[in-house]
Design a protein around this nucleic acid. Structure first.
Length: 212
DNA sequence: CCAGACGTTGTT
DNA sequence: GTCTGG
DNA sequence: CCAGACGTTGTT
DNA sequence: GTCTGG
């Protein structure tokens, strides 16, 4: 449940990690917050019916998924995370889970740690042998009342495993490069075919430092 | 059948 | 849109 | 997560 | 301080 993450790698580095044919330049972003634009990587035409590009492509979307059926008069929901355990059946995430699974490139994410009081220190999580890593995400287009369409996204989370339960309650789903293809292939893989990917790294797999 | 709900995490 | 509760 | 508002009434 | 909206 990162409520904050970072993407400070160079654009070429991100392009290489995700097999992107092209990438727009972007500045280092040490503190990315909900409702801000985030980069997502989606599958190409072979993997996704709505895709334009041949291969995986990056685009910017609003961090905070708005279900397509939300009415303008409703309060905008702040769905910046989605619990992976129930996402496939949840009306808010169901369509995206089936048709618009994506990757969210990051170099670190932030969480409060230490007990259930949730008043612990802010900790920075990174992965030593993966300077750029991928969080599993869901993308959903939203048609605004004025006719403009904005693309939105949420990051999937899972409960921390037993050894980490005292440190953090939930962690984002992190995908390994060998699983990118299967996750992004919404044409041939249904939610049930990718549910095995919903396991967190163990906190021991992260480098955790106190952060401001 | 219709009416109404449908979501997250959290103390920078 | 789609599911649940009444 | 942060930024910004923070009023009125009401009585199963 | 605490809630809401983004």
């Amino acid at each position: 449940m990162p409520g904050r993450f970072a993407l400070t790698a160079a654009p070429e580095s991100v392009a290489r990690c995700f097999g992107l044919a092209a990438i727009d330049d972007f500045p280092p972003r040490p503190a990315i917050l909900p409702t801000q634009p985030i980069m997502v990587v989606l599958g190409g035409r072979a993997e996704r019916a709505e895709a334009f590009a041949d291969g995986p492509a990056a685009q910017l979307v609003r961090w905070g998924l708005i279900p397509g059926w939300f009415k303008a008069t409703d309060r905008l929901p702040a769905m910046f995370n989605a619990p992976a355990e129930t996402a496939a059946g949840n009306p808010a995430f169901r369509g995206a889970m089936r048709h618009r699974r994506c990757l969210v490139p990051a170099t670190a994410f932030y969480r409060r740690t230490g007990g259930r009081s949730r008043t612990g220190p802010l900790s920075r999580f990174s992965i030593e042998d993966m300077p750029v890593f991928a969080m599993a995400g869901l993308m959903e287009p939203y048609m605004a009342p004025d006719g403009s369409e904005i693309d939105t996204a949420a990051i999937l989370t899972v409960p921390a495993r037993a050894p980490d339960a005292g440190l953090v309650d939930r962690l984002p789903v992190i995908l390994r490069p060998e699983d990118f293809g299967r996750w992004l292939d919404c044409r041939h893989r249904e939610p049930g075919d990718v549910a095995d990917l919903f396991r967190p790294f163990c906190a021991a797999d992260f480098s955790v430092e106190t952060a401001g």
